[in-house]
Nucleic acid binder design. Structure first.
Length: 375
RNA sequence: GGAUGGAUUCCCGAGUGGCCAAAGGGGGCAGACUGUAAAUCUGUUAGCAGCGCUUUCGAAGGUUCGAAUCCUUCUCCAUCCA
């Protein structure tokens, strides 16, 4: 159940009820593809840095350790000791990112495992079965994510196929949720809108999938090479045609700026590898802009990443120390920036929620963006 | 005291007459990354702002149109024999 608590322009402050607790939106889901936040971050750490939702991946967990293994162990929540909501991505993005290792047909996609080269078939039904075994809170529909530069005729065919896949996902998920063996019989399912950078295709697709019964609606296939302006205008072309009583999830986005712009345009859910990947690479977010802790200027910088930050890294360690750890390739050198970045994102979402409630979202956004431009 | 093998750009190390400011690796410096095949990838690393020019391959001389590469002497290092 999605409830809109407050609105500030198109920006929404909402709550989304799930069997694993209520999600306060807008929310940033912390990405842990293989049932782990990369950078040696545990689910115990996630509680400390304010993570509300964890995100894992269907394809990756199917390949290793295998969804049947996780099913036997009682589902993903028990497996990784996390009691808050988990969203599983369907493997649709891997159709895109593992290009070269796959073949797309009407029934589904044949992948070649990146782990051992084994051929794997995944279609809408398989993706739902795997996600049902994983027993995540929210499952994502199985889609194709065409590149933003794809030709119109290809995108039209691809989107039409994604629509057919969506309805097969819906049917299969309904069936699975009624099965006795199913761990989470209330598993929710989000649809995915596609259409590359063609606003009319996006709009038509949004209308069609709105009539199908889904618990939430995602905008996929963005932030894959197109400009920010194009991305924002695709959001604008899509959101108005999605159901008002369902949350909107912008997949894979993005930078703090992207998120602020998207919240303003009515998006509720986000996820992105940036805070984790950038963290591992020594890039950290602050209200004064991004820092690359590898840079020589931090060699003797005794300050925390950000003055006053309450994250585990800033409360205890200096930039100079973290730089040393990074240069020495110590695991802690990746862990501390990741903790900081996720804390930064989670905290920003908290501030966004508060700002919408207080109808000060625009001021908040403006101030945040100006601050971050300093560097 | 004698014999042999070495000394290369920040480090290791290739190069045995011109295509060499010199391979490759490391280190350094910087950049990229948006539903994670990412602890990954890219650029750069003698000087000058440049076609280019100037200084570099232990040191000093020499041979040659041309030398990191050949010759002479010296210095230092390693191993072996006394």
């Amino acid at each position: 159940m999605f409830k809109i608590i407050e609105k500030d322009g198109s920006a929404k402050r909402g709550s989304f009820e799930t069997v694993h607790g209520t999600i306060q939106t807008p929310v940033f889901m912390n990405v842990g593809t293989a049932a782990a936040i990369k950078g040696a971050v545990s689910t115990v750490d996630l509680k400390e840095i304010g993570t509300l939702v964890e995100l894992s991946n269907t394809y990756h967990l199917h390949v290793r350790p295998g969804d049947e293994v996780i099913y036997k162990l009682g589902g993903l929540h028990k497996f990784m000791n996390w009691d808050r909501p988990i969203l599983t991505d369907s493997g649709g993005f891997q159709v895109f990112s593992l290009a070269g290792l796959r073949k797309i047909k009407e029934e589904g996609v044949t992948f070649q495992s990146h782990v051992n080269g084994q051929r794997i078939f995944m279609g809408p039904e398989e993706s739902m079965q795997i996600q049902s075994n994983l027993a995540s809170t929210i499952a994502m529909a199985f889609d194709e994510c065409p590149p933003s530069v794809a030709e119109r005729s290809y995108v039209e065919d691809s989107v039409a196929r994604t629509t057919r896949w969506l309805s097969r996902c819906r049917t299969e998920m309904d069936r699975l949720n009624q099965q006795e063996r199913t761990i989470n019989k209330n598993q929710m399912l989000f649809a995915i809108n596609q259409g590359a950078i063609f606003p009319d295709i996006r709009k038509e697709h949004a209308k069609i999938i709105s009539d199908m019964k889904f618990d939430g609606y995602a905008i996929g296939g963005l932030a894959v090479g197109e400009s920010h302006a194009e991305m924002y205008s695709m959001i604008e072309a899509t959101v108005p045609f999605l159901p008002k009583d369902r949350p909107v999830y912008l997949m894979g986005v993005g930078t703090p700026e992207n998120i602020l712009e998207a919240v303003e345009r009515g998006v509720d859910f986000f996820d992105c590898v940036y805070p984790t990947r950038n963290g591992r690479h020594g890039h950290v977010y602050t209200n004064q802009g991004k820092l690359n802790l590898f840079n020589a200027q931090y060699e003797t910088d005794d300050r925390p990443i950000e003055e006053g930050c309450q994250c585990p890294a800033c409360k205890n360690y200096s930039r100079a120390y973290i730089r040393h750890l990074l240069k020495a390739k110590e695991m802690l050198g990746m862990r501390l920036p990741v903790l900081h970045n996720l804390y930064f994102y989670n905290k920003m979402m908290e501030e966004i929620r508060e700002a919408i409630e207080n109808h000060t979202f625009y001021e908040y956004k403006k101030k945040k963006l100006e601050g971050m431009k300093q560097k």
